[in-house]
Amino acid sequence: MKKGLLINSEISYGISKLGHKDSIVIGDAGLPVPHGVQRVDLAVSKGIPSFLSVLSAVLSEQKIEKIILAEEIKTASTTLHEQILSVCKGAEGNLEIEYVPHEEFKRNTGKCKFAVRTGEFTPFANIILISGVVF
């Protein structure tokens, strides 16, 4: 059995197949997943699991160089926005952050290798993680 923080086999396997610049999306319970993008559905009920707990677990295994957030998170969910930045910057020191309108964010999810759906009900609790390299 895996010993690390991330024990979900589908997510761990998906991360193991990522290359430099590949992306995944972690989303709230309502984020639409485009046809053709693999969905890992973790949502059990409202708030379970939380967006931040899933993000933290994924960041324990995935090397990222950039994150993409919806511009709207800055005003609609300010506390979550600050928490996301804190968690991501704690995992990766030098990190590029891009903000795009939510409609563009949703279009960008079509390029992701897979999507993780959480039980989060906070507006705009979605992030695209762009893979870096470990060397």
Rank of each mutant, 00 (worst) to 15 (best):
I128S: 02
I26W: 00
G19F: 07
V87Y: 08
R39C: 03
G19C: 09
H20R: 12
I97Y: 13
K2N: 11
L69C: 09
I97V: 15
F105L: 08
G19P: 08
I73P: 06
I67L: 07
N8L: 01
L31Y: 01
K21W: 11
E72I: 13
V87T: 15
E65P: 03
V100Q: 08
H35T: 13
F105Q: 07
R39S: 01
S131W: 04
V37A: 01
E61V: 05
V40M: 01
E92S: 14
I24T: 02
P34F: 03
V33I: 15
S131I: 08
Y13F: 14
K3F: 06
L129Y: 10
I84A: 02
G90W: 12
S53T: 15
N126P: 06
E103M: 07
L42Y: 00
P32F: 05
K74R: 14
I7E: 00
L18C: 05
H102A: 06
R39M: 04
E104Y: 04
V40P: 05
A125R: 12
E98R: 09
V40L: 04
L31R: 10
I130Q: 11
L52I: 15
G47I: 02
G30P: 10
N126K: 07
I15L: 10
A29Q: 13
V116W: 00
G4L: 03
T122A: 07
N126Y: 05
T122C: 05
S86V: 12
G119T: 14
V116Y: 00
E92G: 02
P34E: 07
F114R: 01
Y99Q: 06
T75Q: 08
K46L: 10
S56F: 15
K111L: 09
T109N: 07
I24R: 00
L6D: 08
C112P: 03
K21G: 03
I48V: 15
V25F: 00
L80C: 09
H81G: 04
A91E: 14
E104R: 13
L129S: 10
S56Y: 15
S16C: 04
L59M: 02
V33L: 01
I48P: 04
A76W: 03
D41W: 02
E65I: 14
N94F: 13
S60C: 01
I7F: 01
E98Y: 06
G36I: 05
E72Q: 11
V116P: 03
V37T: 06
L80K: 09
A43T: 14
P101F: 11
K2P: 15
V25L: 00
S60W: 01
S9M: 11
E96S: 12
I97L: 08
T78A: 07
I11C: 00
G4Q: 02
L59H: 01
L95M: 11
P101D: 09
R39F: 00
V133A: 07
L95K: 10
S60E: 06
K89V: 14
F51Q: 10
T109H: 11
G27K: 02
L55A: 03
V44I: 15
V133L: 12
V133C: 06
H102R: 12
K46M: 10
I48S: 12
K3W: 02
V87H: 07
N108G: 03
L52W: 06
I97W: 14
G36Q: 09
F114V: 03
G132T: 08
G19I: 09
S16V: 04
A29L: 13
E103L: 11
I67H: 06
V54N: 03
L6E: 12
S12N: 14
S53N: 14
